Simulated assay, not measured.
Amino acid sequence: MLRATSALIEERGLRAMTTDDIAGRSGVSKATIYKWWPNKYAVAVDAFLSAMDMASTDPDTGLAHNDFQIVLRGIMEFYRGPGGRTFAQLIGEAQNDSAIATELRNHLMQTRRDIGRTIWDRGVARGELRPDIDREIAVDLVFGPALYRLLTTDAALDDAAADAIVDAAMRGLSAM
């Protein structure tokens, strides 16, 4: 059902897709859908999260700079594809639907932030990163520009941009 939902979002867009479409494409009844999800947006969030989870890991290369680069490159690669368009649509819907906002925050944004926190904590423990900087702000500095680029600009979401963002952030965050 989640693959069918992802395909429908890509083909028709989030707003145009209906619960009937999901049921028809996936071969399940609307009752089954509503048993597990309150609306099509909740199904879309789960479909998006299942795809995003495949794109996110903690690389642990031994250097915080490299770890942040790898993770940000993965995020930007995902944003360049259909998932990025879906995510932008979900962010838009979340402005008017607190359930979508909560799902995105709890099941997507926090998992990405958890990876960033882990990288940060390892870097501080190894003496690479400044312990006097608030961890949440540091994670914002590294990952925030990708989301900003996705939602508000037509700036590149490629490896070179990811590397430049991490390089710039690390200049201010590095302990050395």
Rank of each mutant, 00 (worst) to 15 (best):
T153D: 07
A162Y: 05
R135V: 08
G144H: 04
D121M: 07
A101N: 09
V166H: 02
G144L: 08
F143V: 12
T152S: 07
W120I: 08
T111P: 09
I165M: 10
L157P: 13
A162D: 13
R113Y: 00
I119S: 07
W120S: 11
Q95E: 14
D114E: 15
Q95V: 09
P131V: 15
D158C: 03
I133Y: 08
Q110R: 08
R126W: 07
W120P: 11
A94R: 00
H107S: 09
I137F: 13
D132M: 15
D154E: 07
L141P: 11
V139K: 13
E103R: 05
R122I: 09
D163I: 05
G144D: 11
V142K: 14
E103H: 01
R135S: 03
L147W: 13
A156I: 00
G116S: 07
H107P: 05
L150K: 06
R113C: 10
R113Q: 05
L129G: 01
P131W: 05
I100S: 12
L150N: 07
L141G: 11
G116R: 04
L108Q: 01
A94W: 02
T111R: 04
Q110T: 12
I119Y: 00
A94K: 12
L129I: 04
S98L: 07
G144A: 10
D159H: 07
G116C: 09
H107W: 08
G144Q: 09
I137A: 14
A155M: 09
D97Q: 01
R135F: 07
D121P: 02
A138Q: 02
G116D: 03
R117I: 04
Q95N: 11
N106E: 03
Q95M: 15
W120N: 09
I119H: 01
R117F: 15
E128M: 12
N106T: 01
P131F: 13
R117G: 06
H107R: 12
M109C: 00
G144K: 15
A94P: 05
P131E: 13
I165G: 11
N106S: 07
I115K: 01
L150T: 15
D140N: 04
T153G: 05
A125Y: 13
T111D: 11
D140S: 10
D140L: 01
D163L: 04
S98R: 10
D140C: 06
